[in-house]
Structure formats: C-alpha cells, structure tokens
Design a protein around this nucleic acid. Structure first.
Length: 311
DNA sequence: AGCCAGGAGATTT
DNA sequence: AAATCTCATGGC
C-alpha cells in the first residue's frame, strides 16, 4: 500500500513561491545527494542553489530553488514567466514537493530505524534526507534501464548522451538547461538513431519499446497509480520488455513512491550491507530477505539511506 | 587482461 | 521457483 500524503503549505511572497518544509528536512544533506555525480545533466547546483527545468502539461519553466534562514524553500521562475497560469503554478509546486518527498512523514521510518542495528548509525548521519524522486515516469524508467548492469558514473554518462542527443534545452545566462526527451520523440526513432550513444543494442530496444508504450498511452503514471498496491504495480511493470524486478522496484520507489518498494538484487544495496556489517562477501539472499522483512514497510527508505553510505 | 558494475530475458533444473 | 547462461559496454 502507498503511504498517506501530507499537505504541504506554500504561498507566494515577493514573487517567490515559498514552501514550508516538513519536520525532518535538511536542505544540505539533500543537496549532497543531488551532487553525487558531476555528469548529472537534469539540473545544476551552484552555491546551494538548484537550477532545473520543470515541464508542466503546457510549458517548460527554468526555476531556481534555494532555502532561507527559516529553512523554507524558495522557488523562483526564471523563464517563460508570461505564460504562467494557476495550473502551471500548481504543477511546479507539486513537482518540487514530489521531488523532495515533502509530503511524506519520516517519523515512523526513523522510529523503526532507530531500533535497527544496521540502520541506526546510518540515519544519524543523514538526518533530514528525503528519498529524492524522479517525478517524470518516462525519465524514471529510462534511468532505470540505462543503469542496468553498469557502474553509476558510466550510467550518468549514458544518460547525458541520451538527453543531449534527443532532448531540448533552455538557454539562460550563457548556460543551458536540459529537458528530458519526451516519449513521443523517442518513439519515432530507430536503433540507428542511437549510433552516438554507447549503450547496448538491447537497452536501445528497451527504451524504444517503453517510449512507444508511453507515447500511445498504454503506460501512464496515472494508470500505474490506480493499482494502489505494490505487488500488482510491480507485476504490471515486469510484464514490459526490459523491466525486471530491479527496475520495477526502482521506479516504484523513486517515481510512484511506494514506501515498501525494494530492489533486493541491487548491487549498491549489497555493497552497503557488506560494508556496514563488515562481511567478507556480499550478503546472501536469505540475509537480504530477512533484512527486508525487518525494514517492512519502509524498505524503500532503508535502501535509499544505505545507498548514501557508499559515497 | 580480467573482473565488475544501482540486470534482463531465455533456458535449464 | 530458482539457479544458470548469454548479452555486451566501459572503468579500474
């Protein structure tokens, strides 16, 4: 089941969208997470300010995100302001709330983790870290597929090649900000269009197939949401070519926000457990299963926090 | 050179 | 169901 969503208050003050952050939110640790790789191409971070393009149903807006001394988040709209309407404003705010999972209450996860020998020291160092999401379903699926069976730095390189080859960007002050390619755009391509992108043919096929499903509306975020149950949503996703249990759970965790999604086969998760428990080898499957049961129903947050111990 | 990396699908047991 | 094999690319 999905977790209850809390209401996140916001208002407009002096042309800024100001969001009141919930209990347990630390701007700096979340930014540290976002800065984990220099090849990230979907946003830029400079001097505690995040710049990214948020695409609403009808427009693209370059925004910057900062926090003030009261730990409130400020969104400034930098481009395309003349087309901003109520609907777009709402979509922008909801995107940021979703991105940083601000509508989620971390209290119960921390309560569980503080009684868990493995997680206890981990949450102490990462207090206020949110499971930063990928609100765009197509982006989340592509990122999952791109990241299969390769190391993370290389995955970021491939994503960058993909985005800069097929996506559009907004120019602003001698810099450019990329927009993730639309499924409709990718669905029209062929394998040969991927010649400059150094990923396996198999992955190119997966991406084209998923783009087709989303471009035709056979696969939508709203449709997946209707399941309202982790196992059936997982089943729907794993029926799709290129999406196995790992990718399905990864996307259900970072996009659909299932708090108990658990990519149990994840190498990063294995390495984190090995490191923290000082194991000679990677954890066995029975150990992983028992840990998962121990963390239920917060397996997604447990995984995300453990990933952070690797860098 | 050889093993591994935030796996998936097909095949075999 | 669960283990095993094939696919394939770049980093270290």
């Amino acid at each position: 089941m999905k977790a209850h969503k809390n209401k996140v208050p916001w208002e407009i003050i002096n042309d800024d969208i100001v969001i009141k952050v919930p209990k347990y939110f630390n701007y700096e640790v979340n930014l540290n997470y976002l800065m984990r790789n220099l090849d990230e191409c979907m946003f830029k971070i400079d001097n505690n300010c995040v710049m990214t393009v948020i695409s609403t149903t009808s427009n693209d807006y370059l925004i910057n995100l900062t926090n003030d001394s009261n730990d409130k988040l400020h969104i400034k709209i930098l481009t395309n302001k003349q087309s901003l309407n109520e609907q777009d404003l709402k979509e922008i705010v909801n995107y940021v709330i979703d991105w940083f999972h601000l509508d989620y209450d971390l209290t119960l996860f921390y309560k569980m983790a503080s009684n868990d020998p493995l997680l206890k020291p981990v949450i102490k160092d990462l207090q206020g870290l949110r499971l930063c999401g990928v609100p765009n379903l197509f982006e989340a699926l592509c990122w999952g597929i791109i990241g299969q069976q390769i190391n993370l730095p290389f995955a970021y390189q491939l994503k960058k090649q993909f985005v800069t080859t097929f996506g559009k960007s907004i120019d602003y002050k001698n810099d450019n900000y990329w927009i993730f390619p639309k499924a409709e755009t990718i669905a029209k391509l062929t394998i040969d269009d991927f010649n400059n992108i150094k990923m396996t043919t198999r992955k190119k096929e997966y991406l084209l197939g998923i783009a087709e499903l989303m471009a035709t509306g056979q696969l939508t975020k709203a449709g997946l949401r209707e399941h309202n149950d982790l196992k059936t949503a997982e089943k729907t996703l794993t029926k799709i070519r290129g999406i196995g249990p790992w990718t399905a759970n990864y996307v259900l965790m970072r996009c659909l926000r299932y708090e108990n999604a658990f990519p149990i086969a994840d190498v990063g998760l294995h390495n984190a457990i090995k490191k923290l428990k000082n194991l000679p080898e990677k954890p066995t499957k029975p150990l992983l299963q028992s840990l998962g049961e121990r963390w239920d129903p917060f397996q997604a947050y447990a995984t995300f926090y453990l990933w952070r111990t690797l860098y």
